[in-house]
Design a protein around this nucleic acid. Sequence first.
DNA 1: GCCTGTGAACAGTTTCACAGCG
DNA 2: CGCTGTGAAACTGTTCACAGGC
Lengths: 229, 229
Amino acid sequence: MNPSRPRIPEATVARLAVYLRVLGGLADSGRASVSSGELAGAAGVNPAGLRKDLSHLGPCGVRGVGYDVAGLRDRIARVLGVERSRACVLVGLGNLGSALADYAGFGSRGFEFVGLFDSSPQRIGQVIGGRPVLALTELDDVVTGTAATIGVIATPAEVAQEICDRLTAAGVRSILNFAPVTLTAPAGVDVRQVDLSVELQVLAFLDTSRDAGRDTGSDARVPAVGGMA
Amino acid sequence: MNPSRPRIPEATVARLAVYLRVLGGLADSGRASVSSGELAGAAGVNPAGLRKDLSHLGPCGVRGVGYDVAGLRDRIARVLGVERSRACVLVGLGNLGSALADYAGFGSRGFEFVGLFDSSPQRIGQVIGGRPVLALTELDDVVTGTAATIGVIATPAEVAQEICDRLTAAGVRSILNFAPVTLTAPAGVDVRQVDLSVELQVLAFLDTSRDAGRDTGSDARVPAVGGMA
DNA sequence: GCCTGTGAACAGTTTCACAGCG
DNA sequence: CGCTGTGAAACTGTTCACAGGC
């Protein structure tokens, strides 16, 4: 198969990001090669499923041996488009936004916040994660000036749609939304929703149904891989 | 139909939580009834899919009219098990953990943090979101004393597995993990993973493949995010 | 022997079309 | 009529079993 042509299923893409994280850890600890079984164990997935996921990138292992850790890591990074740093802007620097801006994990995984924005005069000018918080009026200039294509929304729900509109108008093509509202964006703009309350409520349901219905114990499989939203 | 045990698909459960949020907003603005089309629009899903989701709760609409807003909201809340407040514990009060502890959205959606824990002496004793941060040594007593069954992990990756072990040993049955590691838990314990870097990397992939691949690729056909719509 | 890569069976979801009721 | 509820079809994603190369 041609490595780039076939559309990679979104569920596979999400797992590739997990494999990338695990491979990074293995590389740091000096491992040279790894089998699908071991990698699948560390990522919490089925070995056959992992091999099927990787098959979307074309053959990239050695039969009878396994996968080259650094080579596979680089290949996945290239497919995901995180082989070099990508510019992101973040709007809303309340508790959650500040936590995101200050989260070192992003920088080491190919994302750099090139602009932090808030509407509150009290927050404008503060330095968070090494960057100053700017006024919303500068959003357009920064997005066009840095060619940022990824935007993160961590505002209150009431203003999230308006921010989404401004981001897309400025040229942002991909949005990660933490506000608990369903955003509407123009065609061609991807929106991913992370709703923390939804996650907790799914847990609450599992919790409730485990106690209420004492049918056979829930599935014996242990790890959980990122789901929806 | 039997209201308790007709095995609701997990994808449906996640959407029920979204409908619940939308219905809450509608109820607050005084709406008495709503059609599947309108509710689906506000939730960002397909109307037929929404009706199928609701069909798992048994008939709960009026044909030719729509759904009773407050009635449907209460019914979904009951099914999800959030009709009354549930006790949660939170471990790790760095930036993200503090944001979670201080997030008012949880309290209004049926979750109450009954214990905040950290290992750092500098954080122990601080009051965050109205609650004092406790030492990890008190974790077991608080979990058993409050009968908390839900735990949230917002620690660094290195200690997340150990915290997971302690939570499950203390009796926690459901875990929401923000640390970028795949946790292993005993059978019967549900773990949900929220990995912010994974979310961004999926966006990066969509972003990259939207523009014609510079690699070897040429085709840039990309599926839309989100399930139905 | 080992382990990867993959077609084929399987399971779960989404969509469609329409029956059924107010 | 309109809108809900639902079986059946279409689709996507997952698991299995084994073929194929090291």
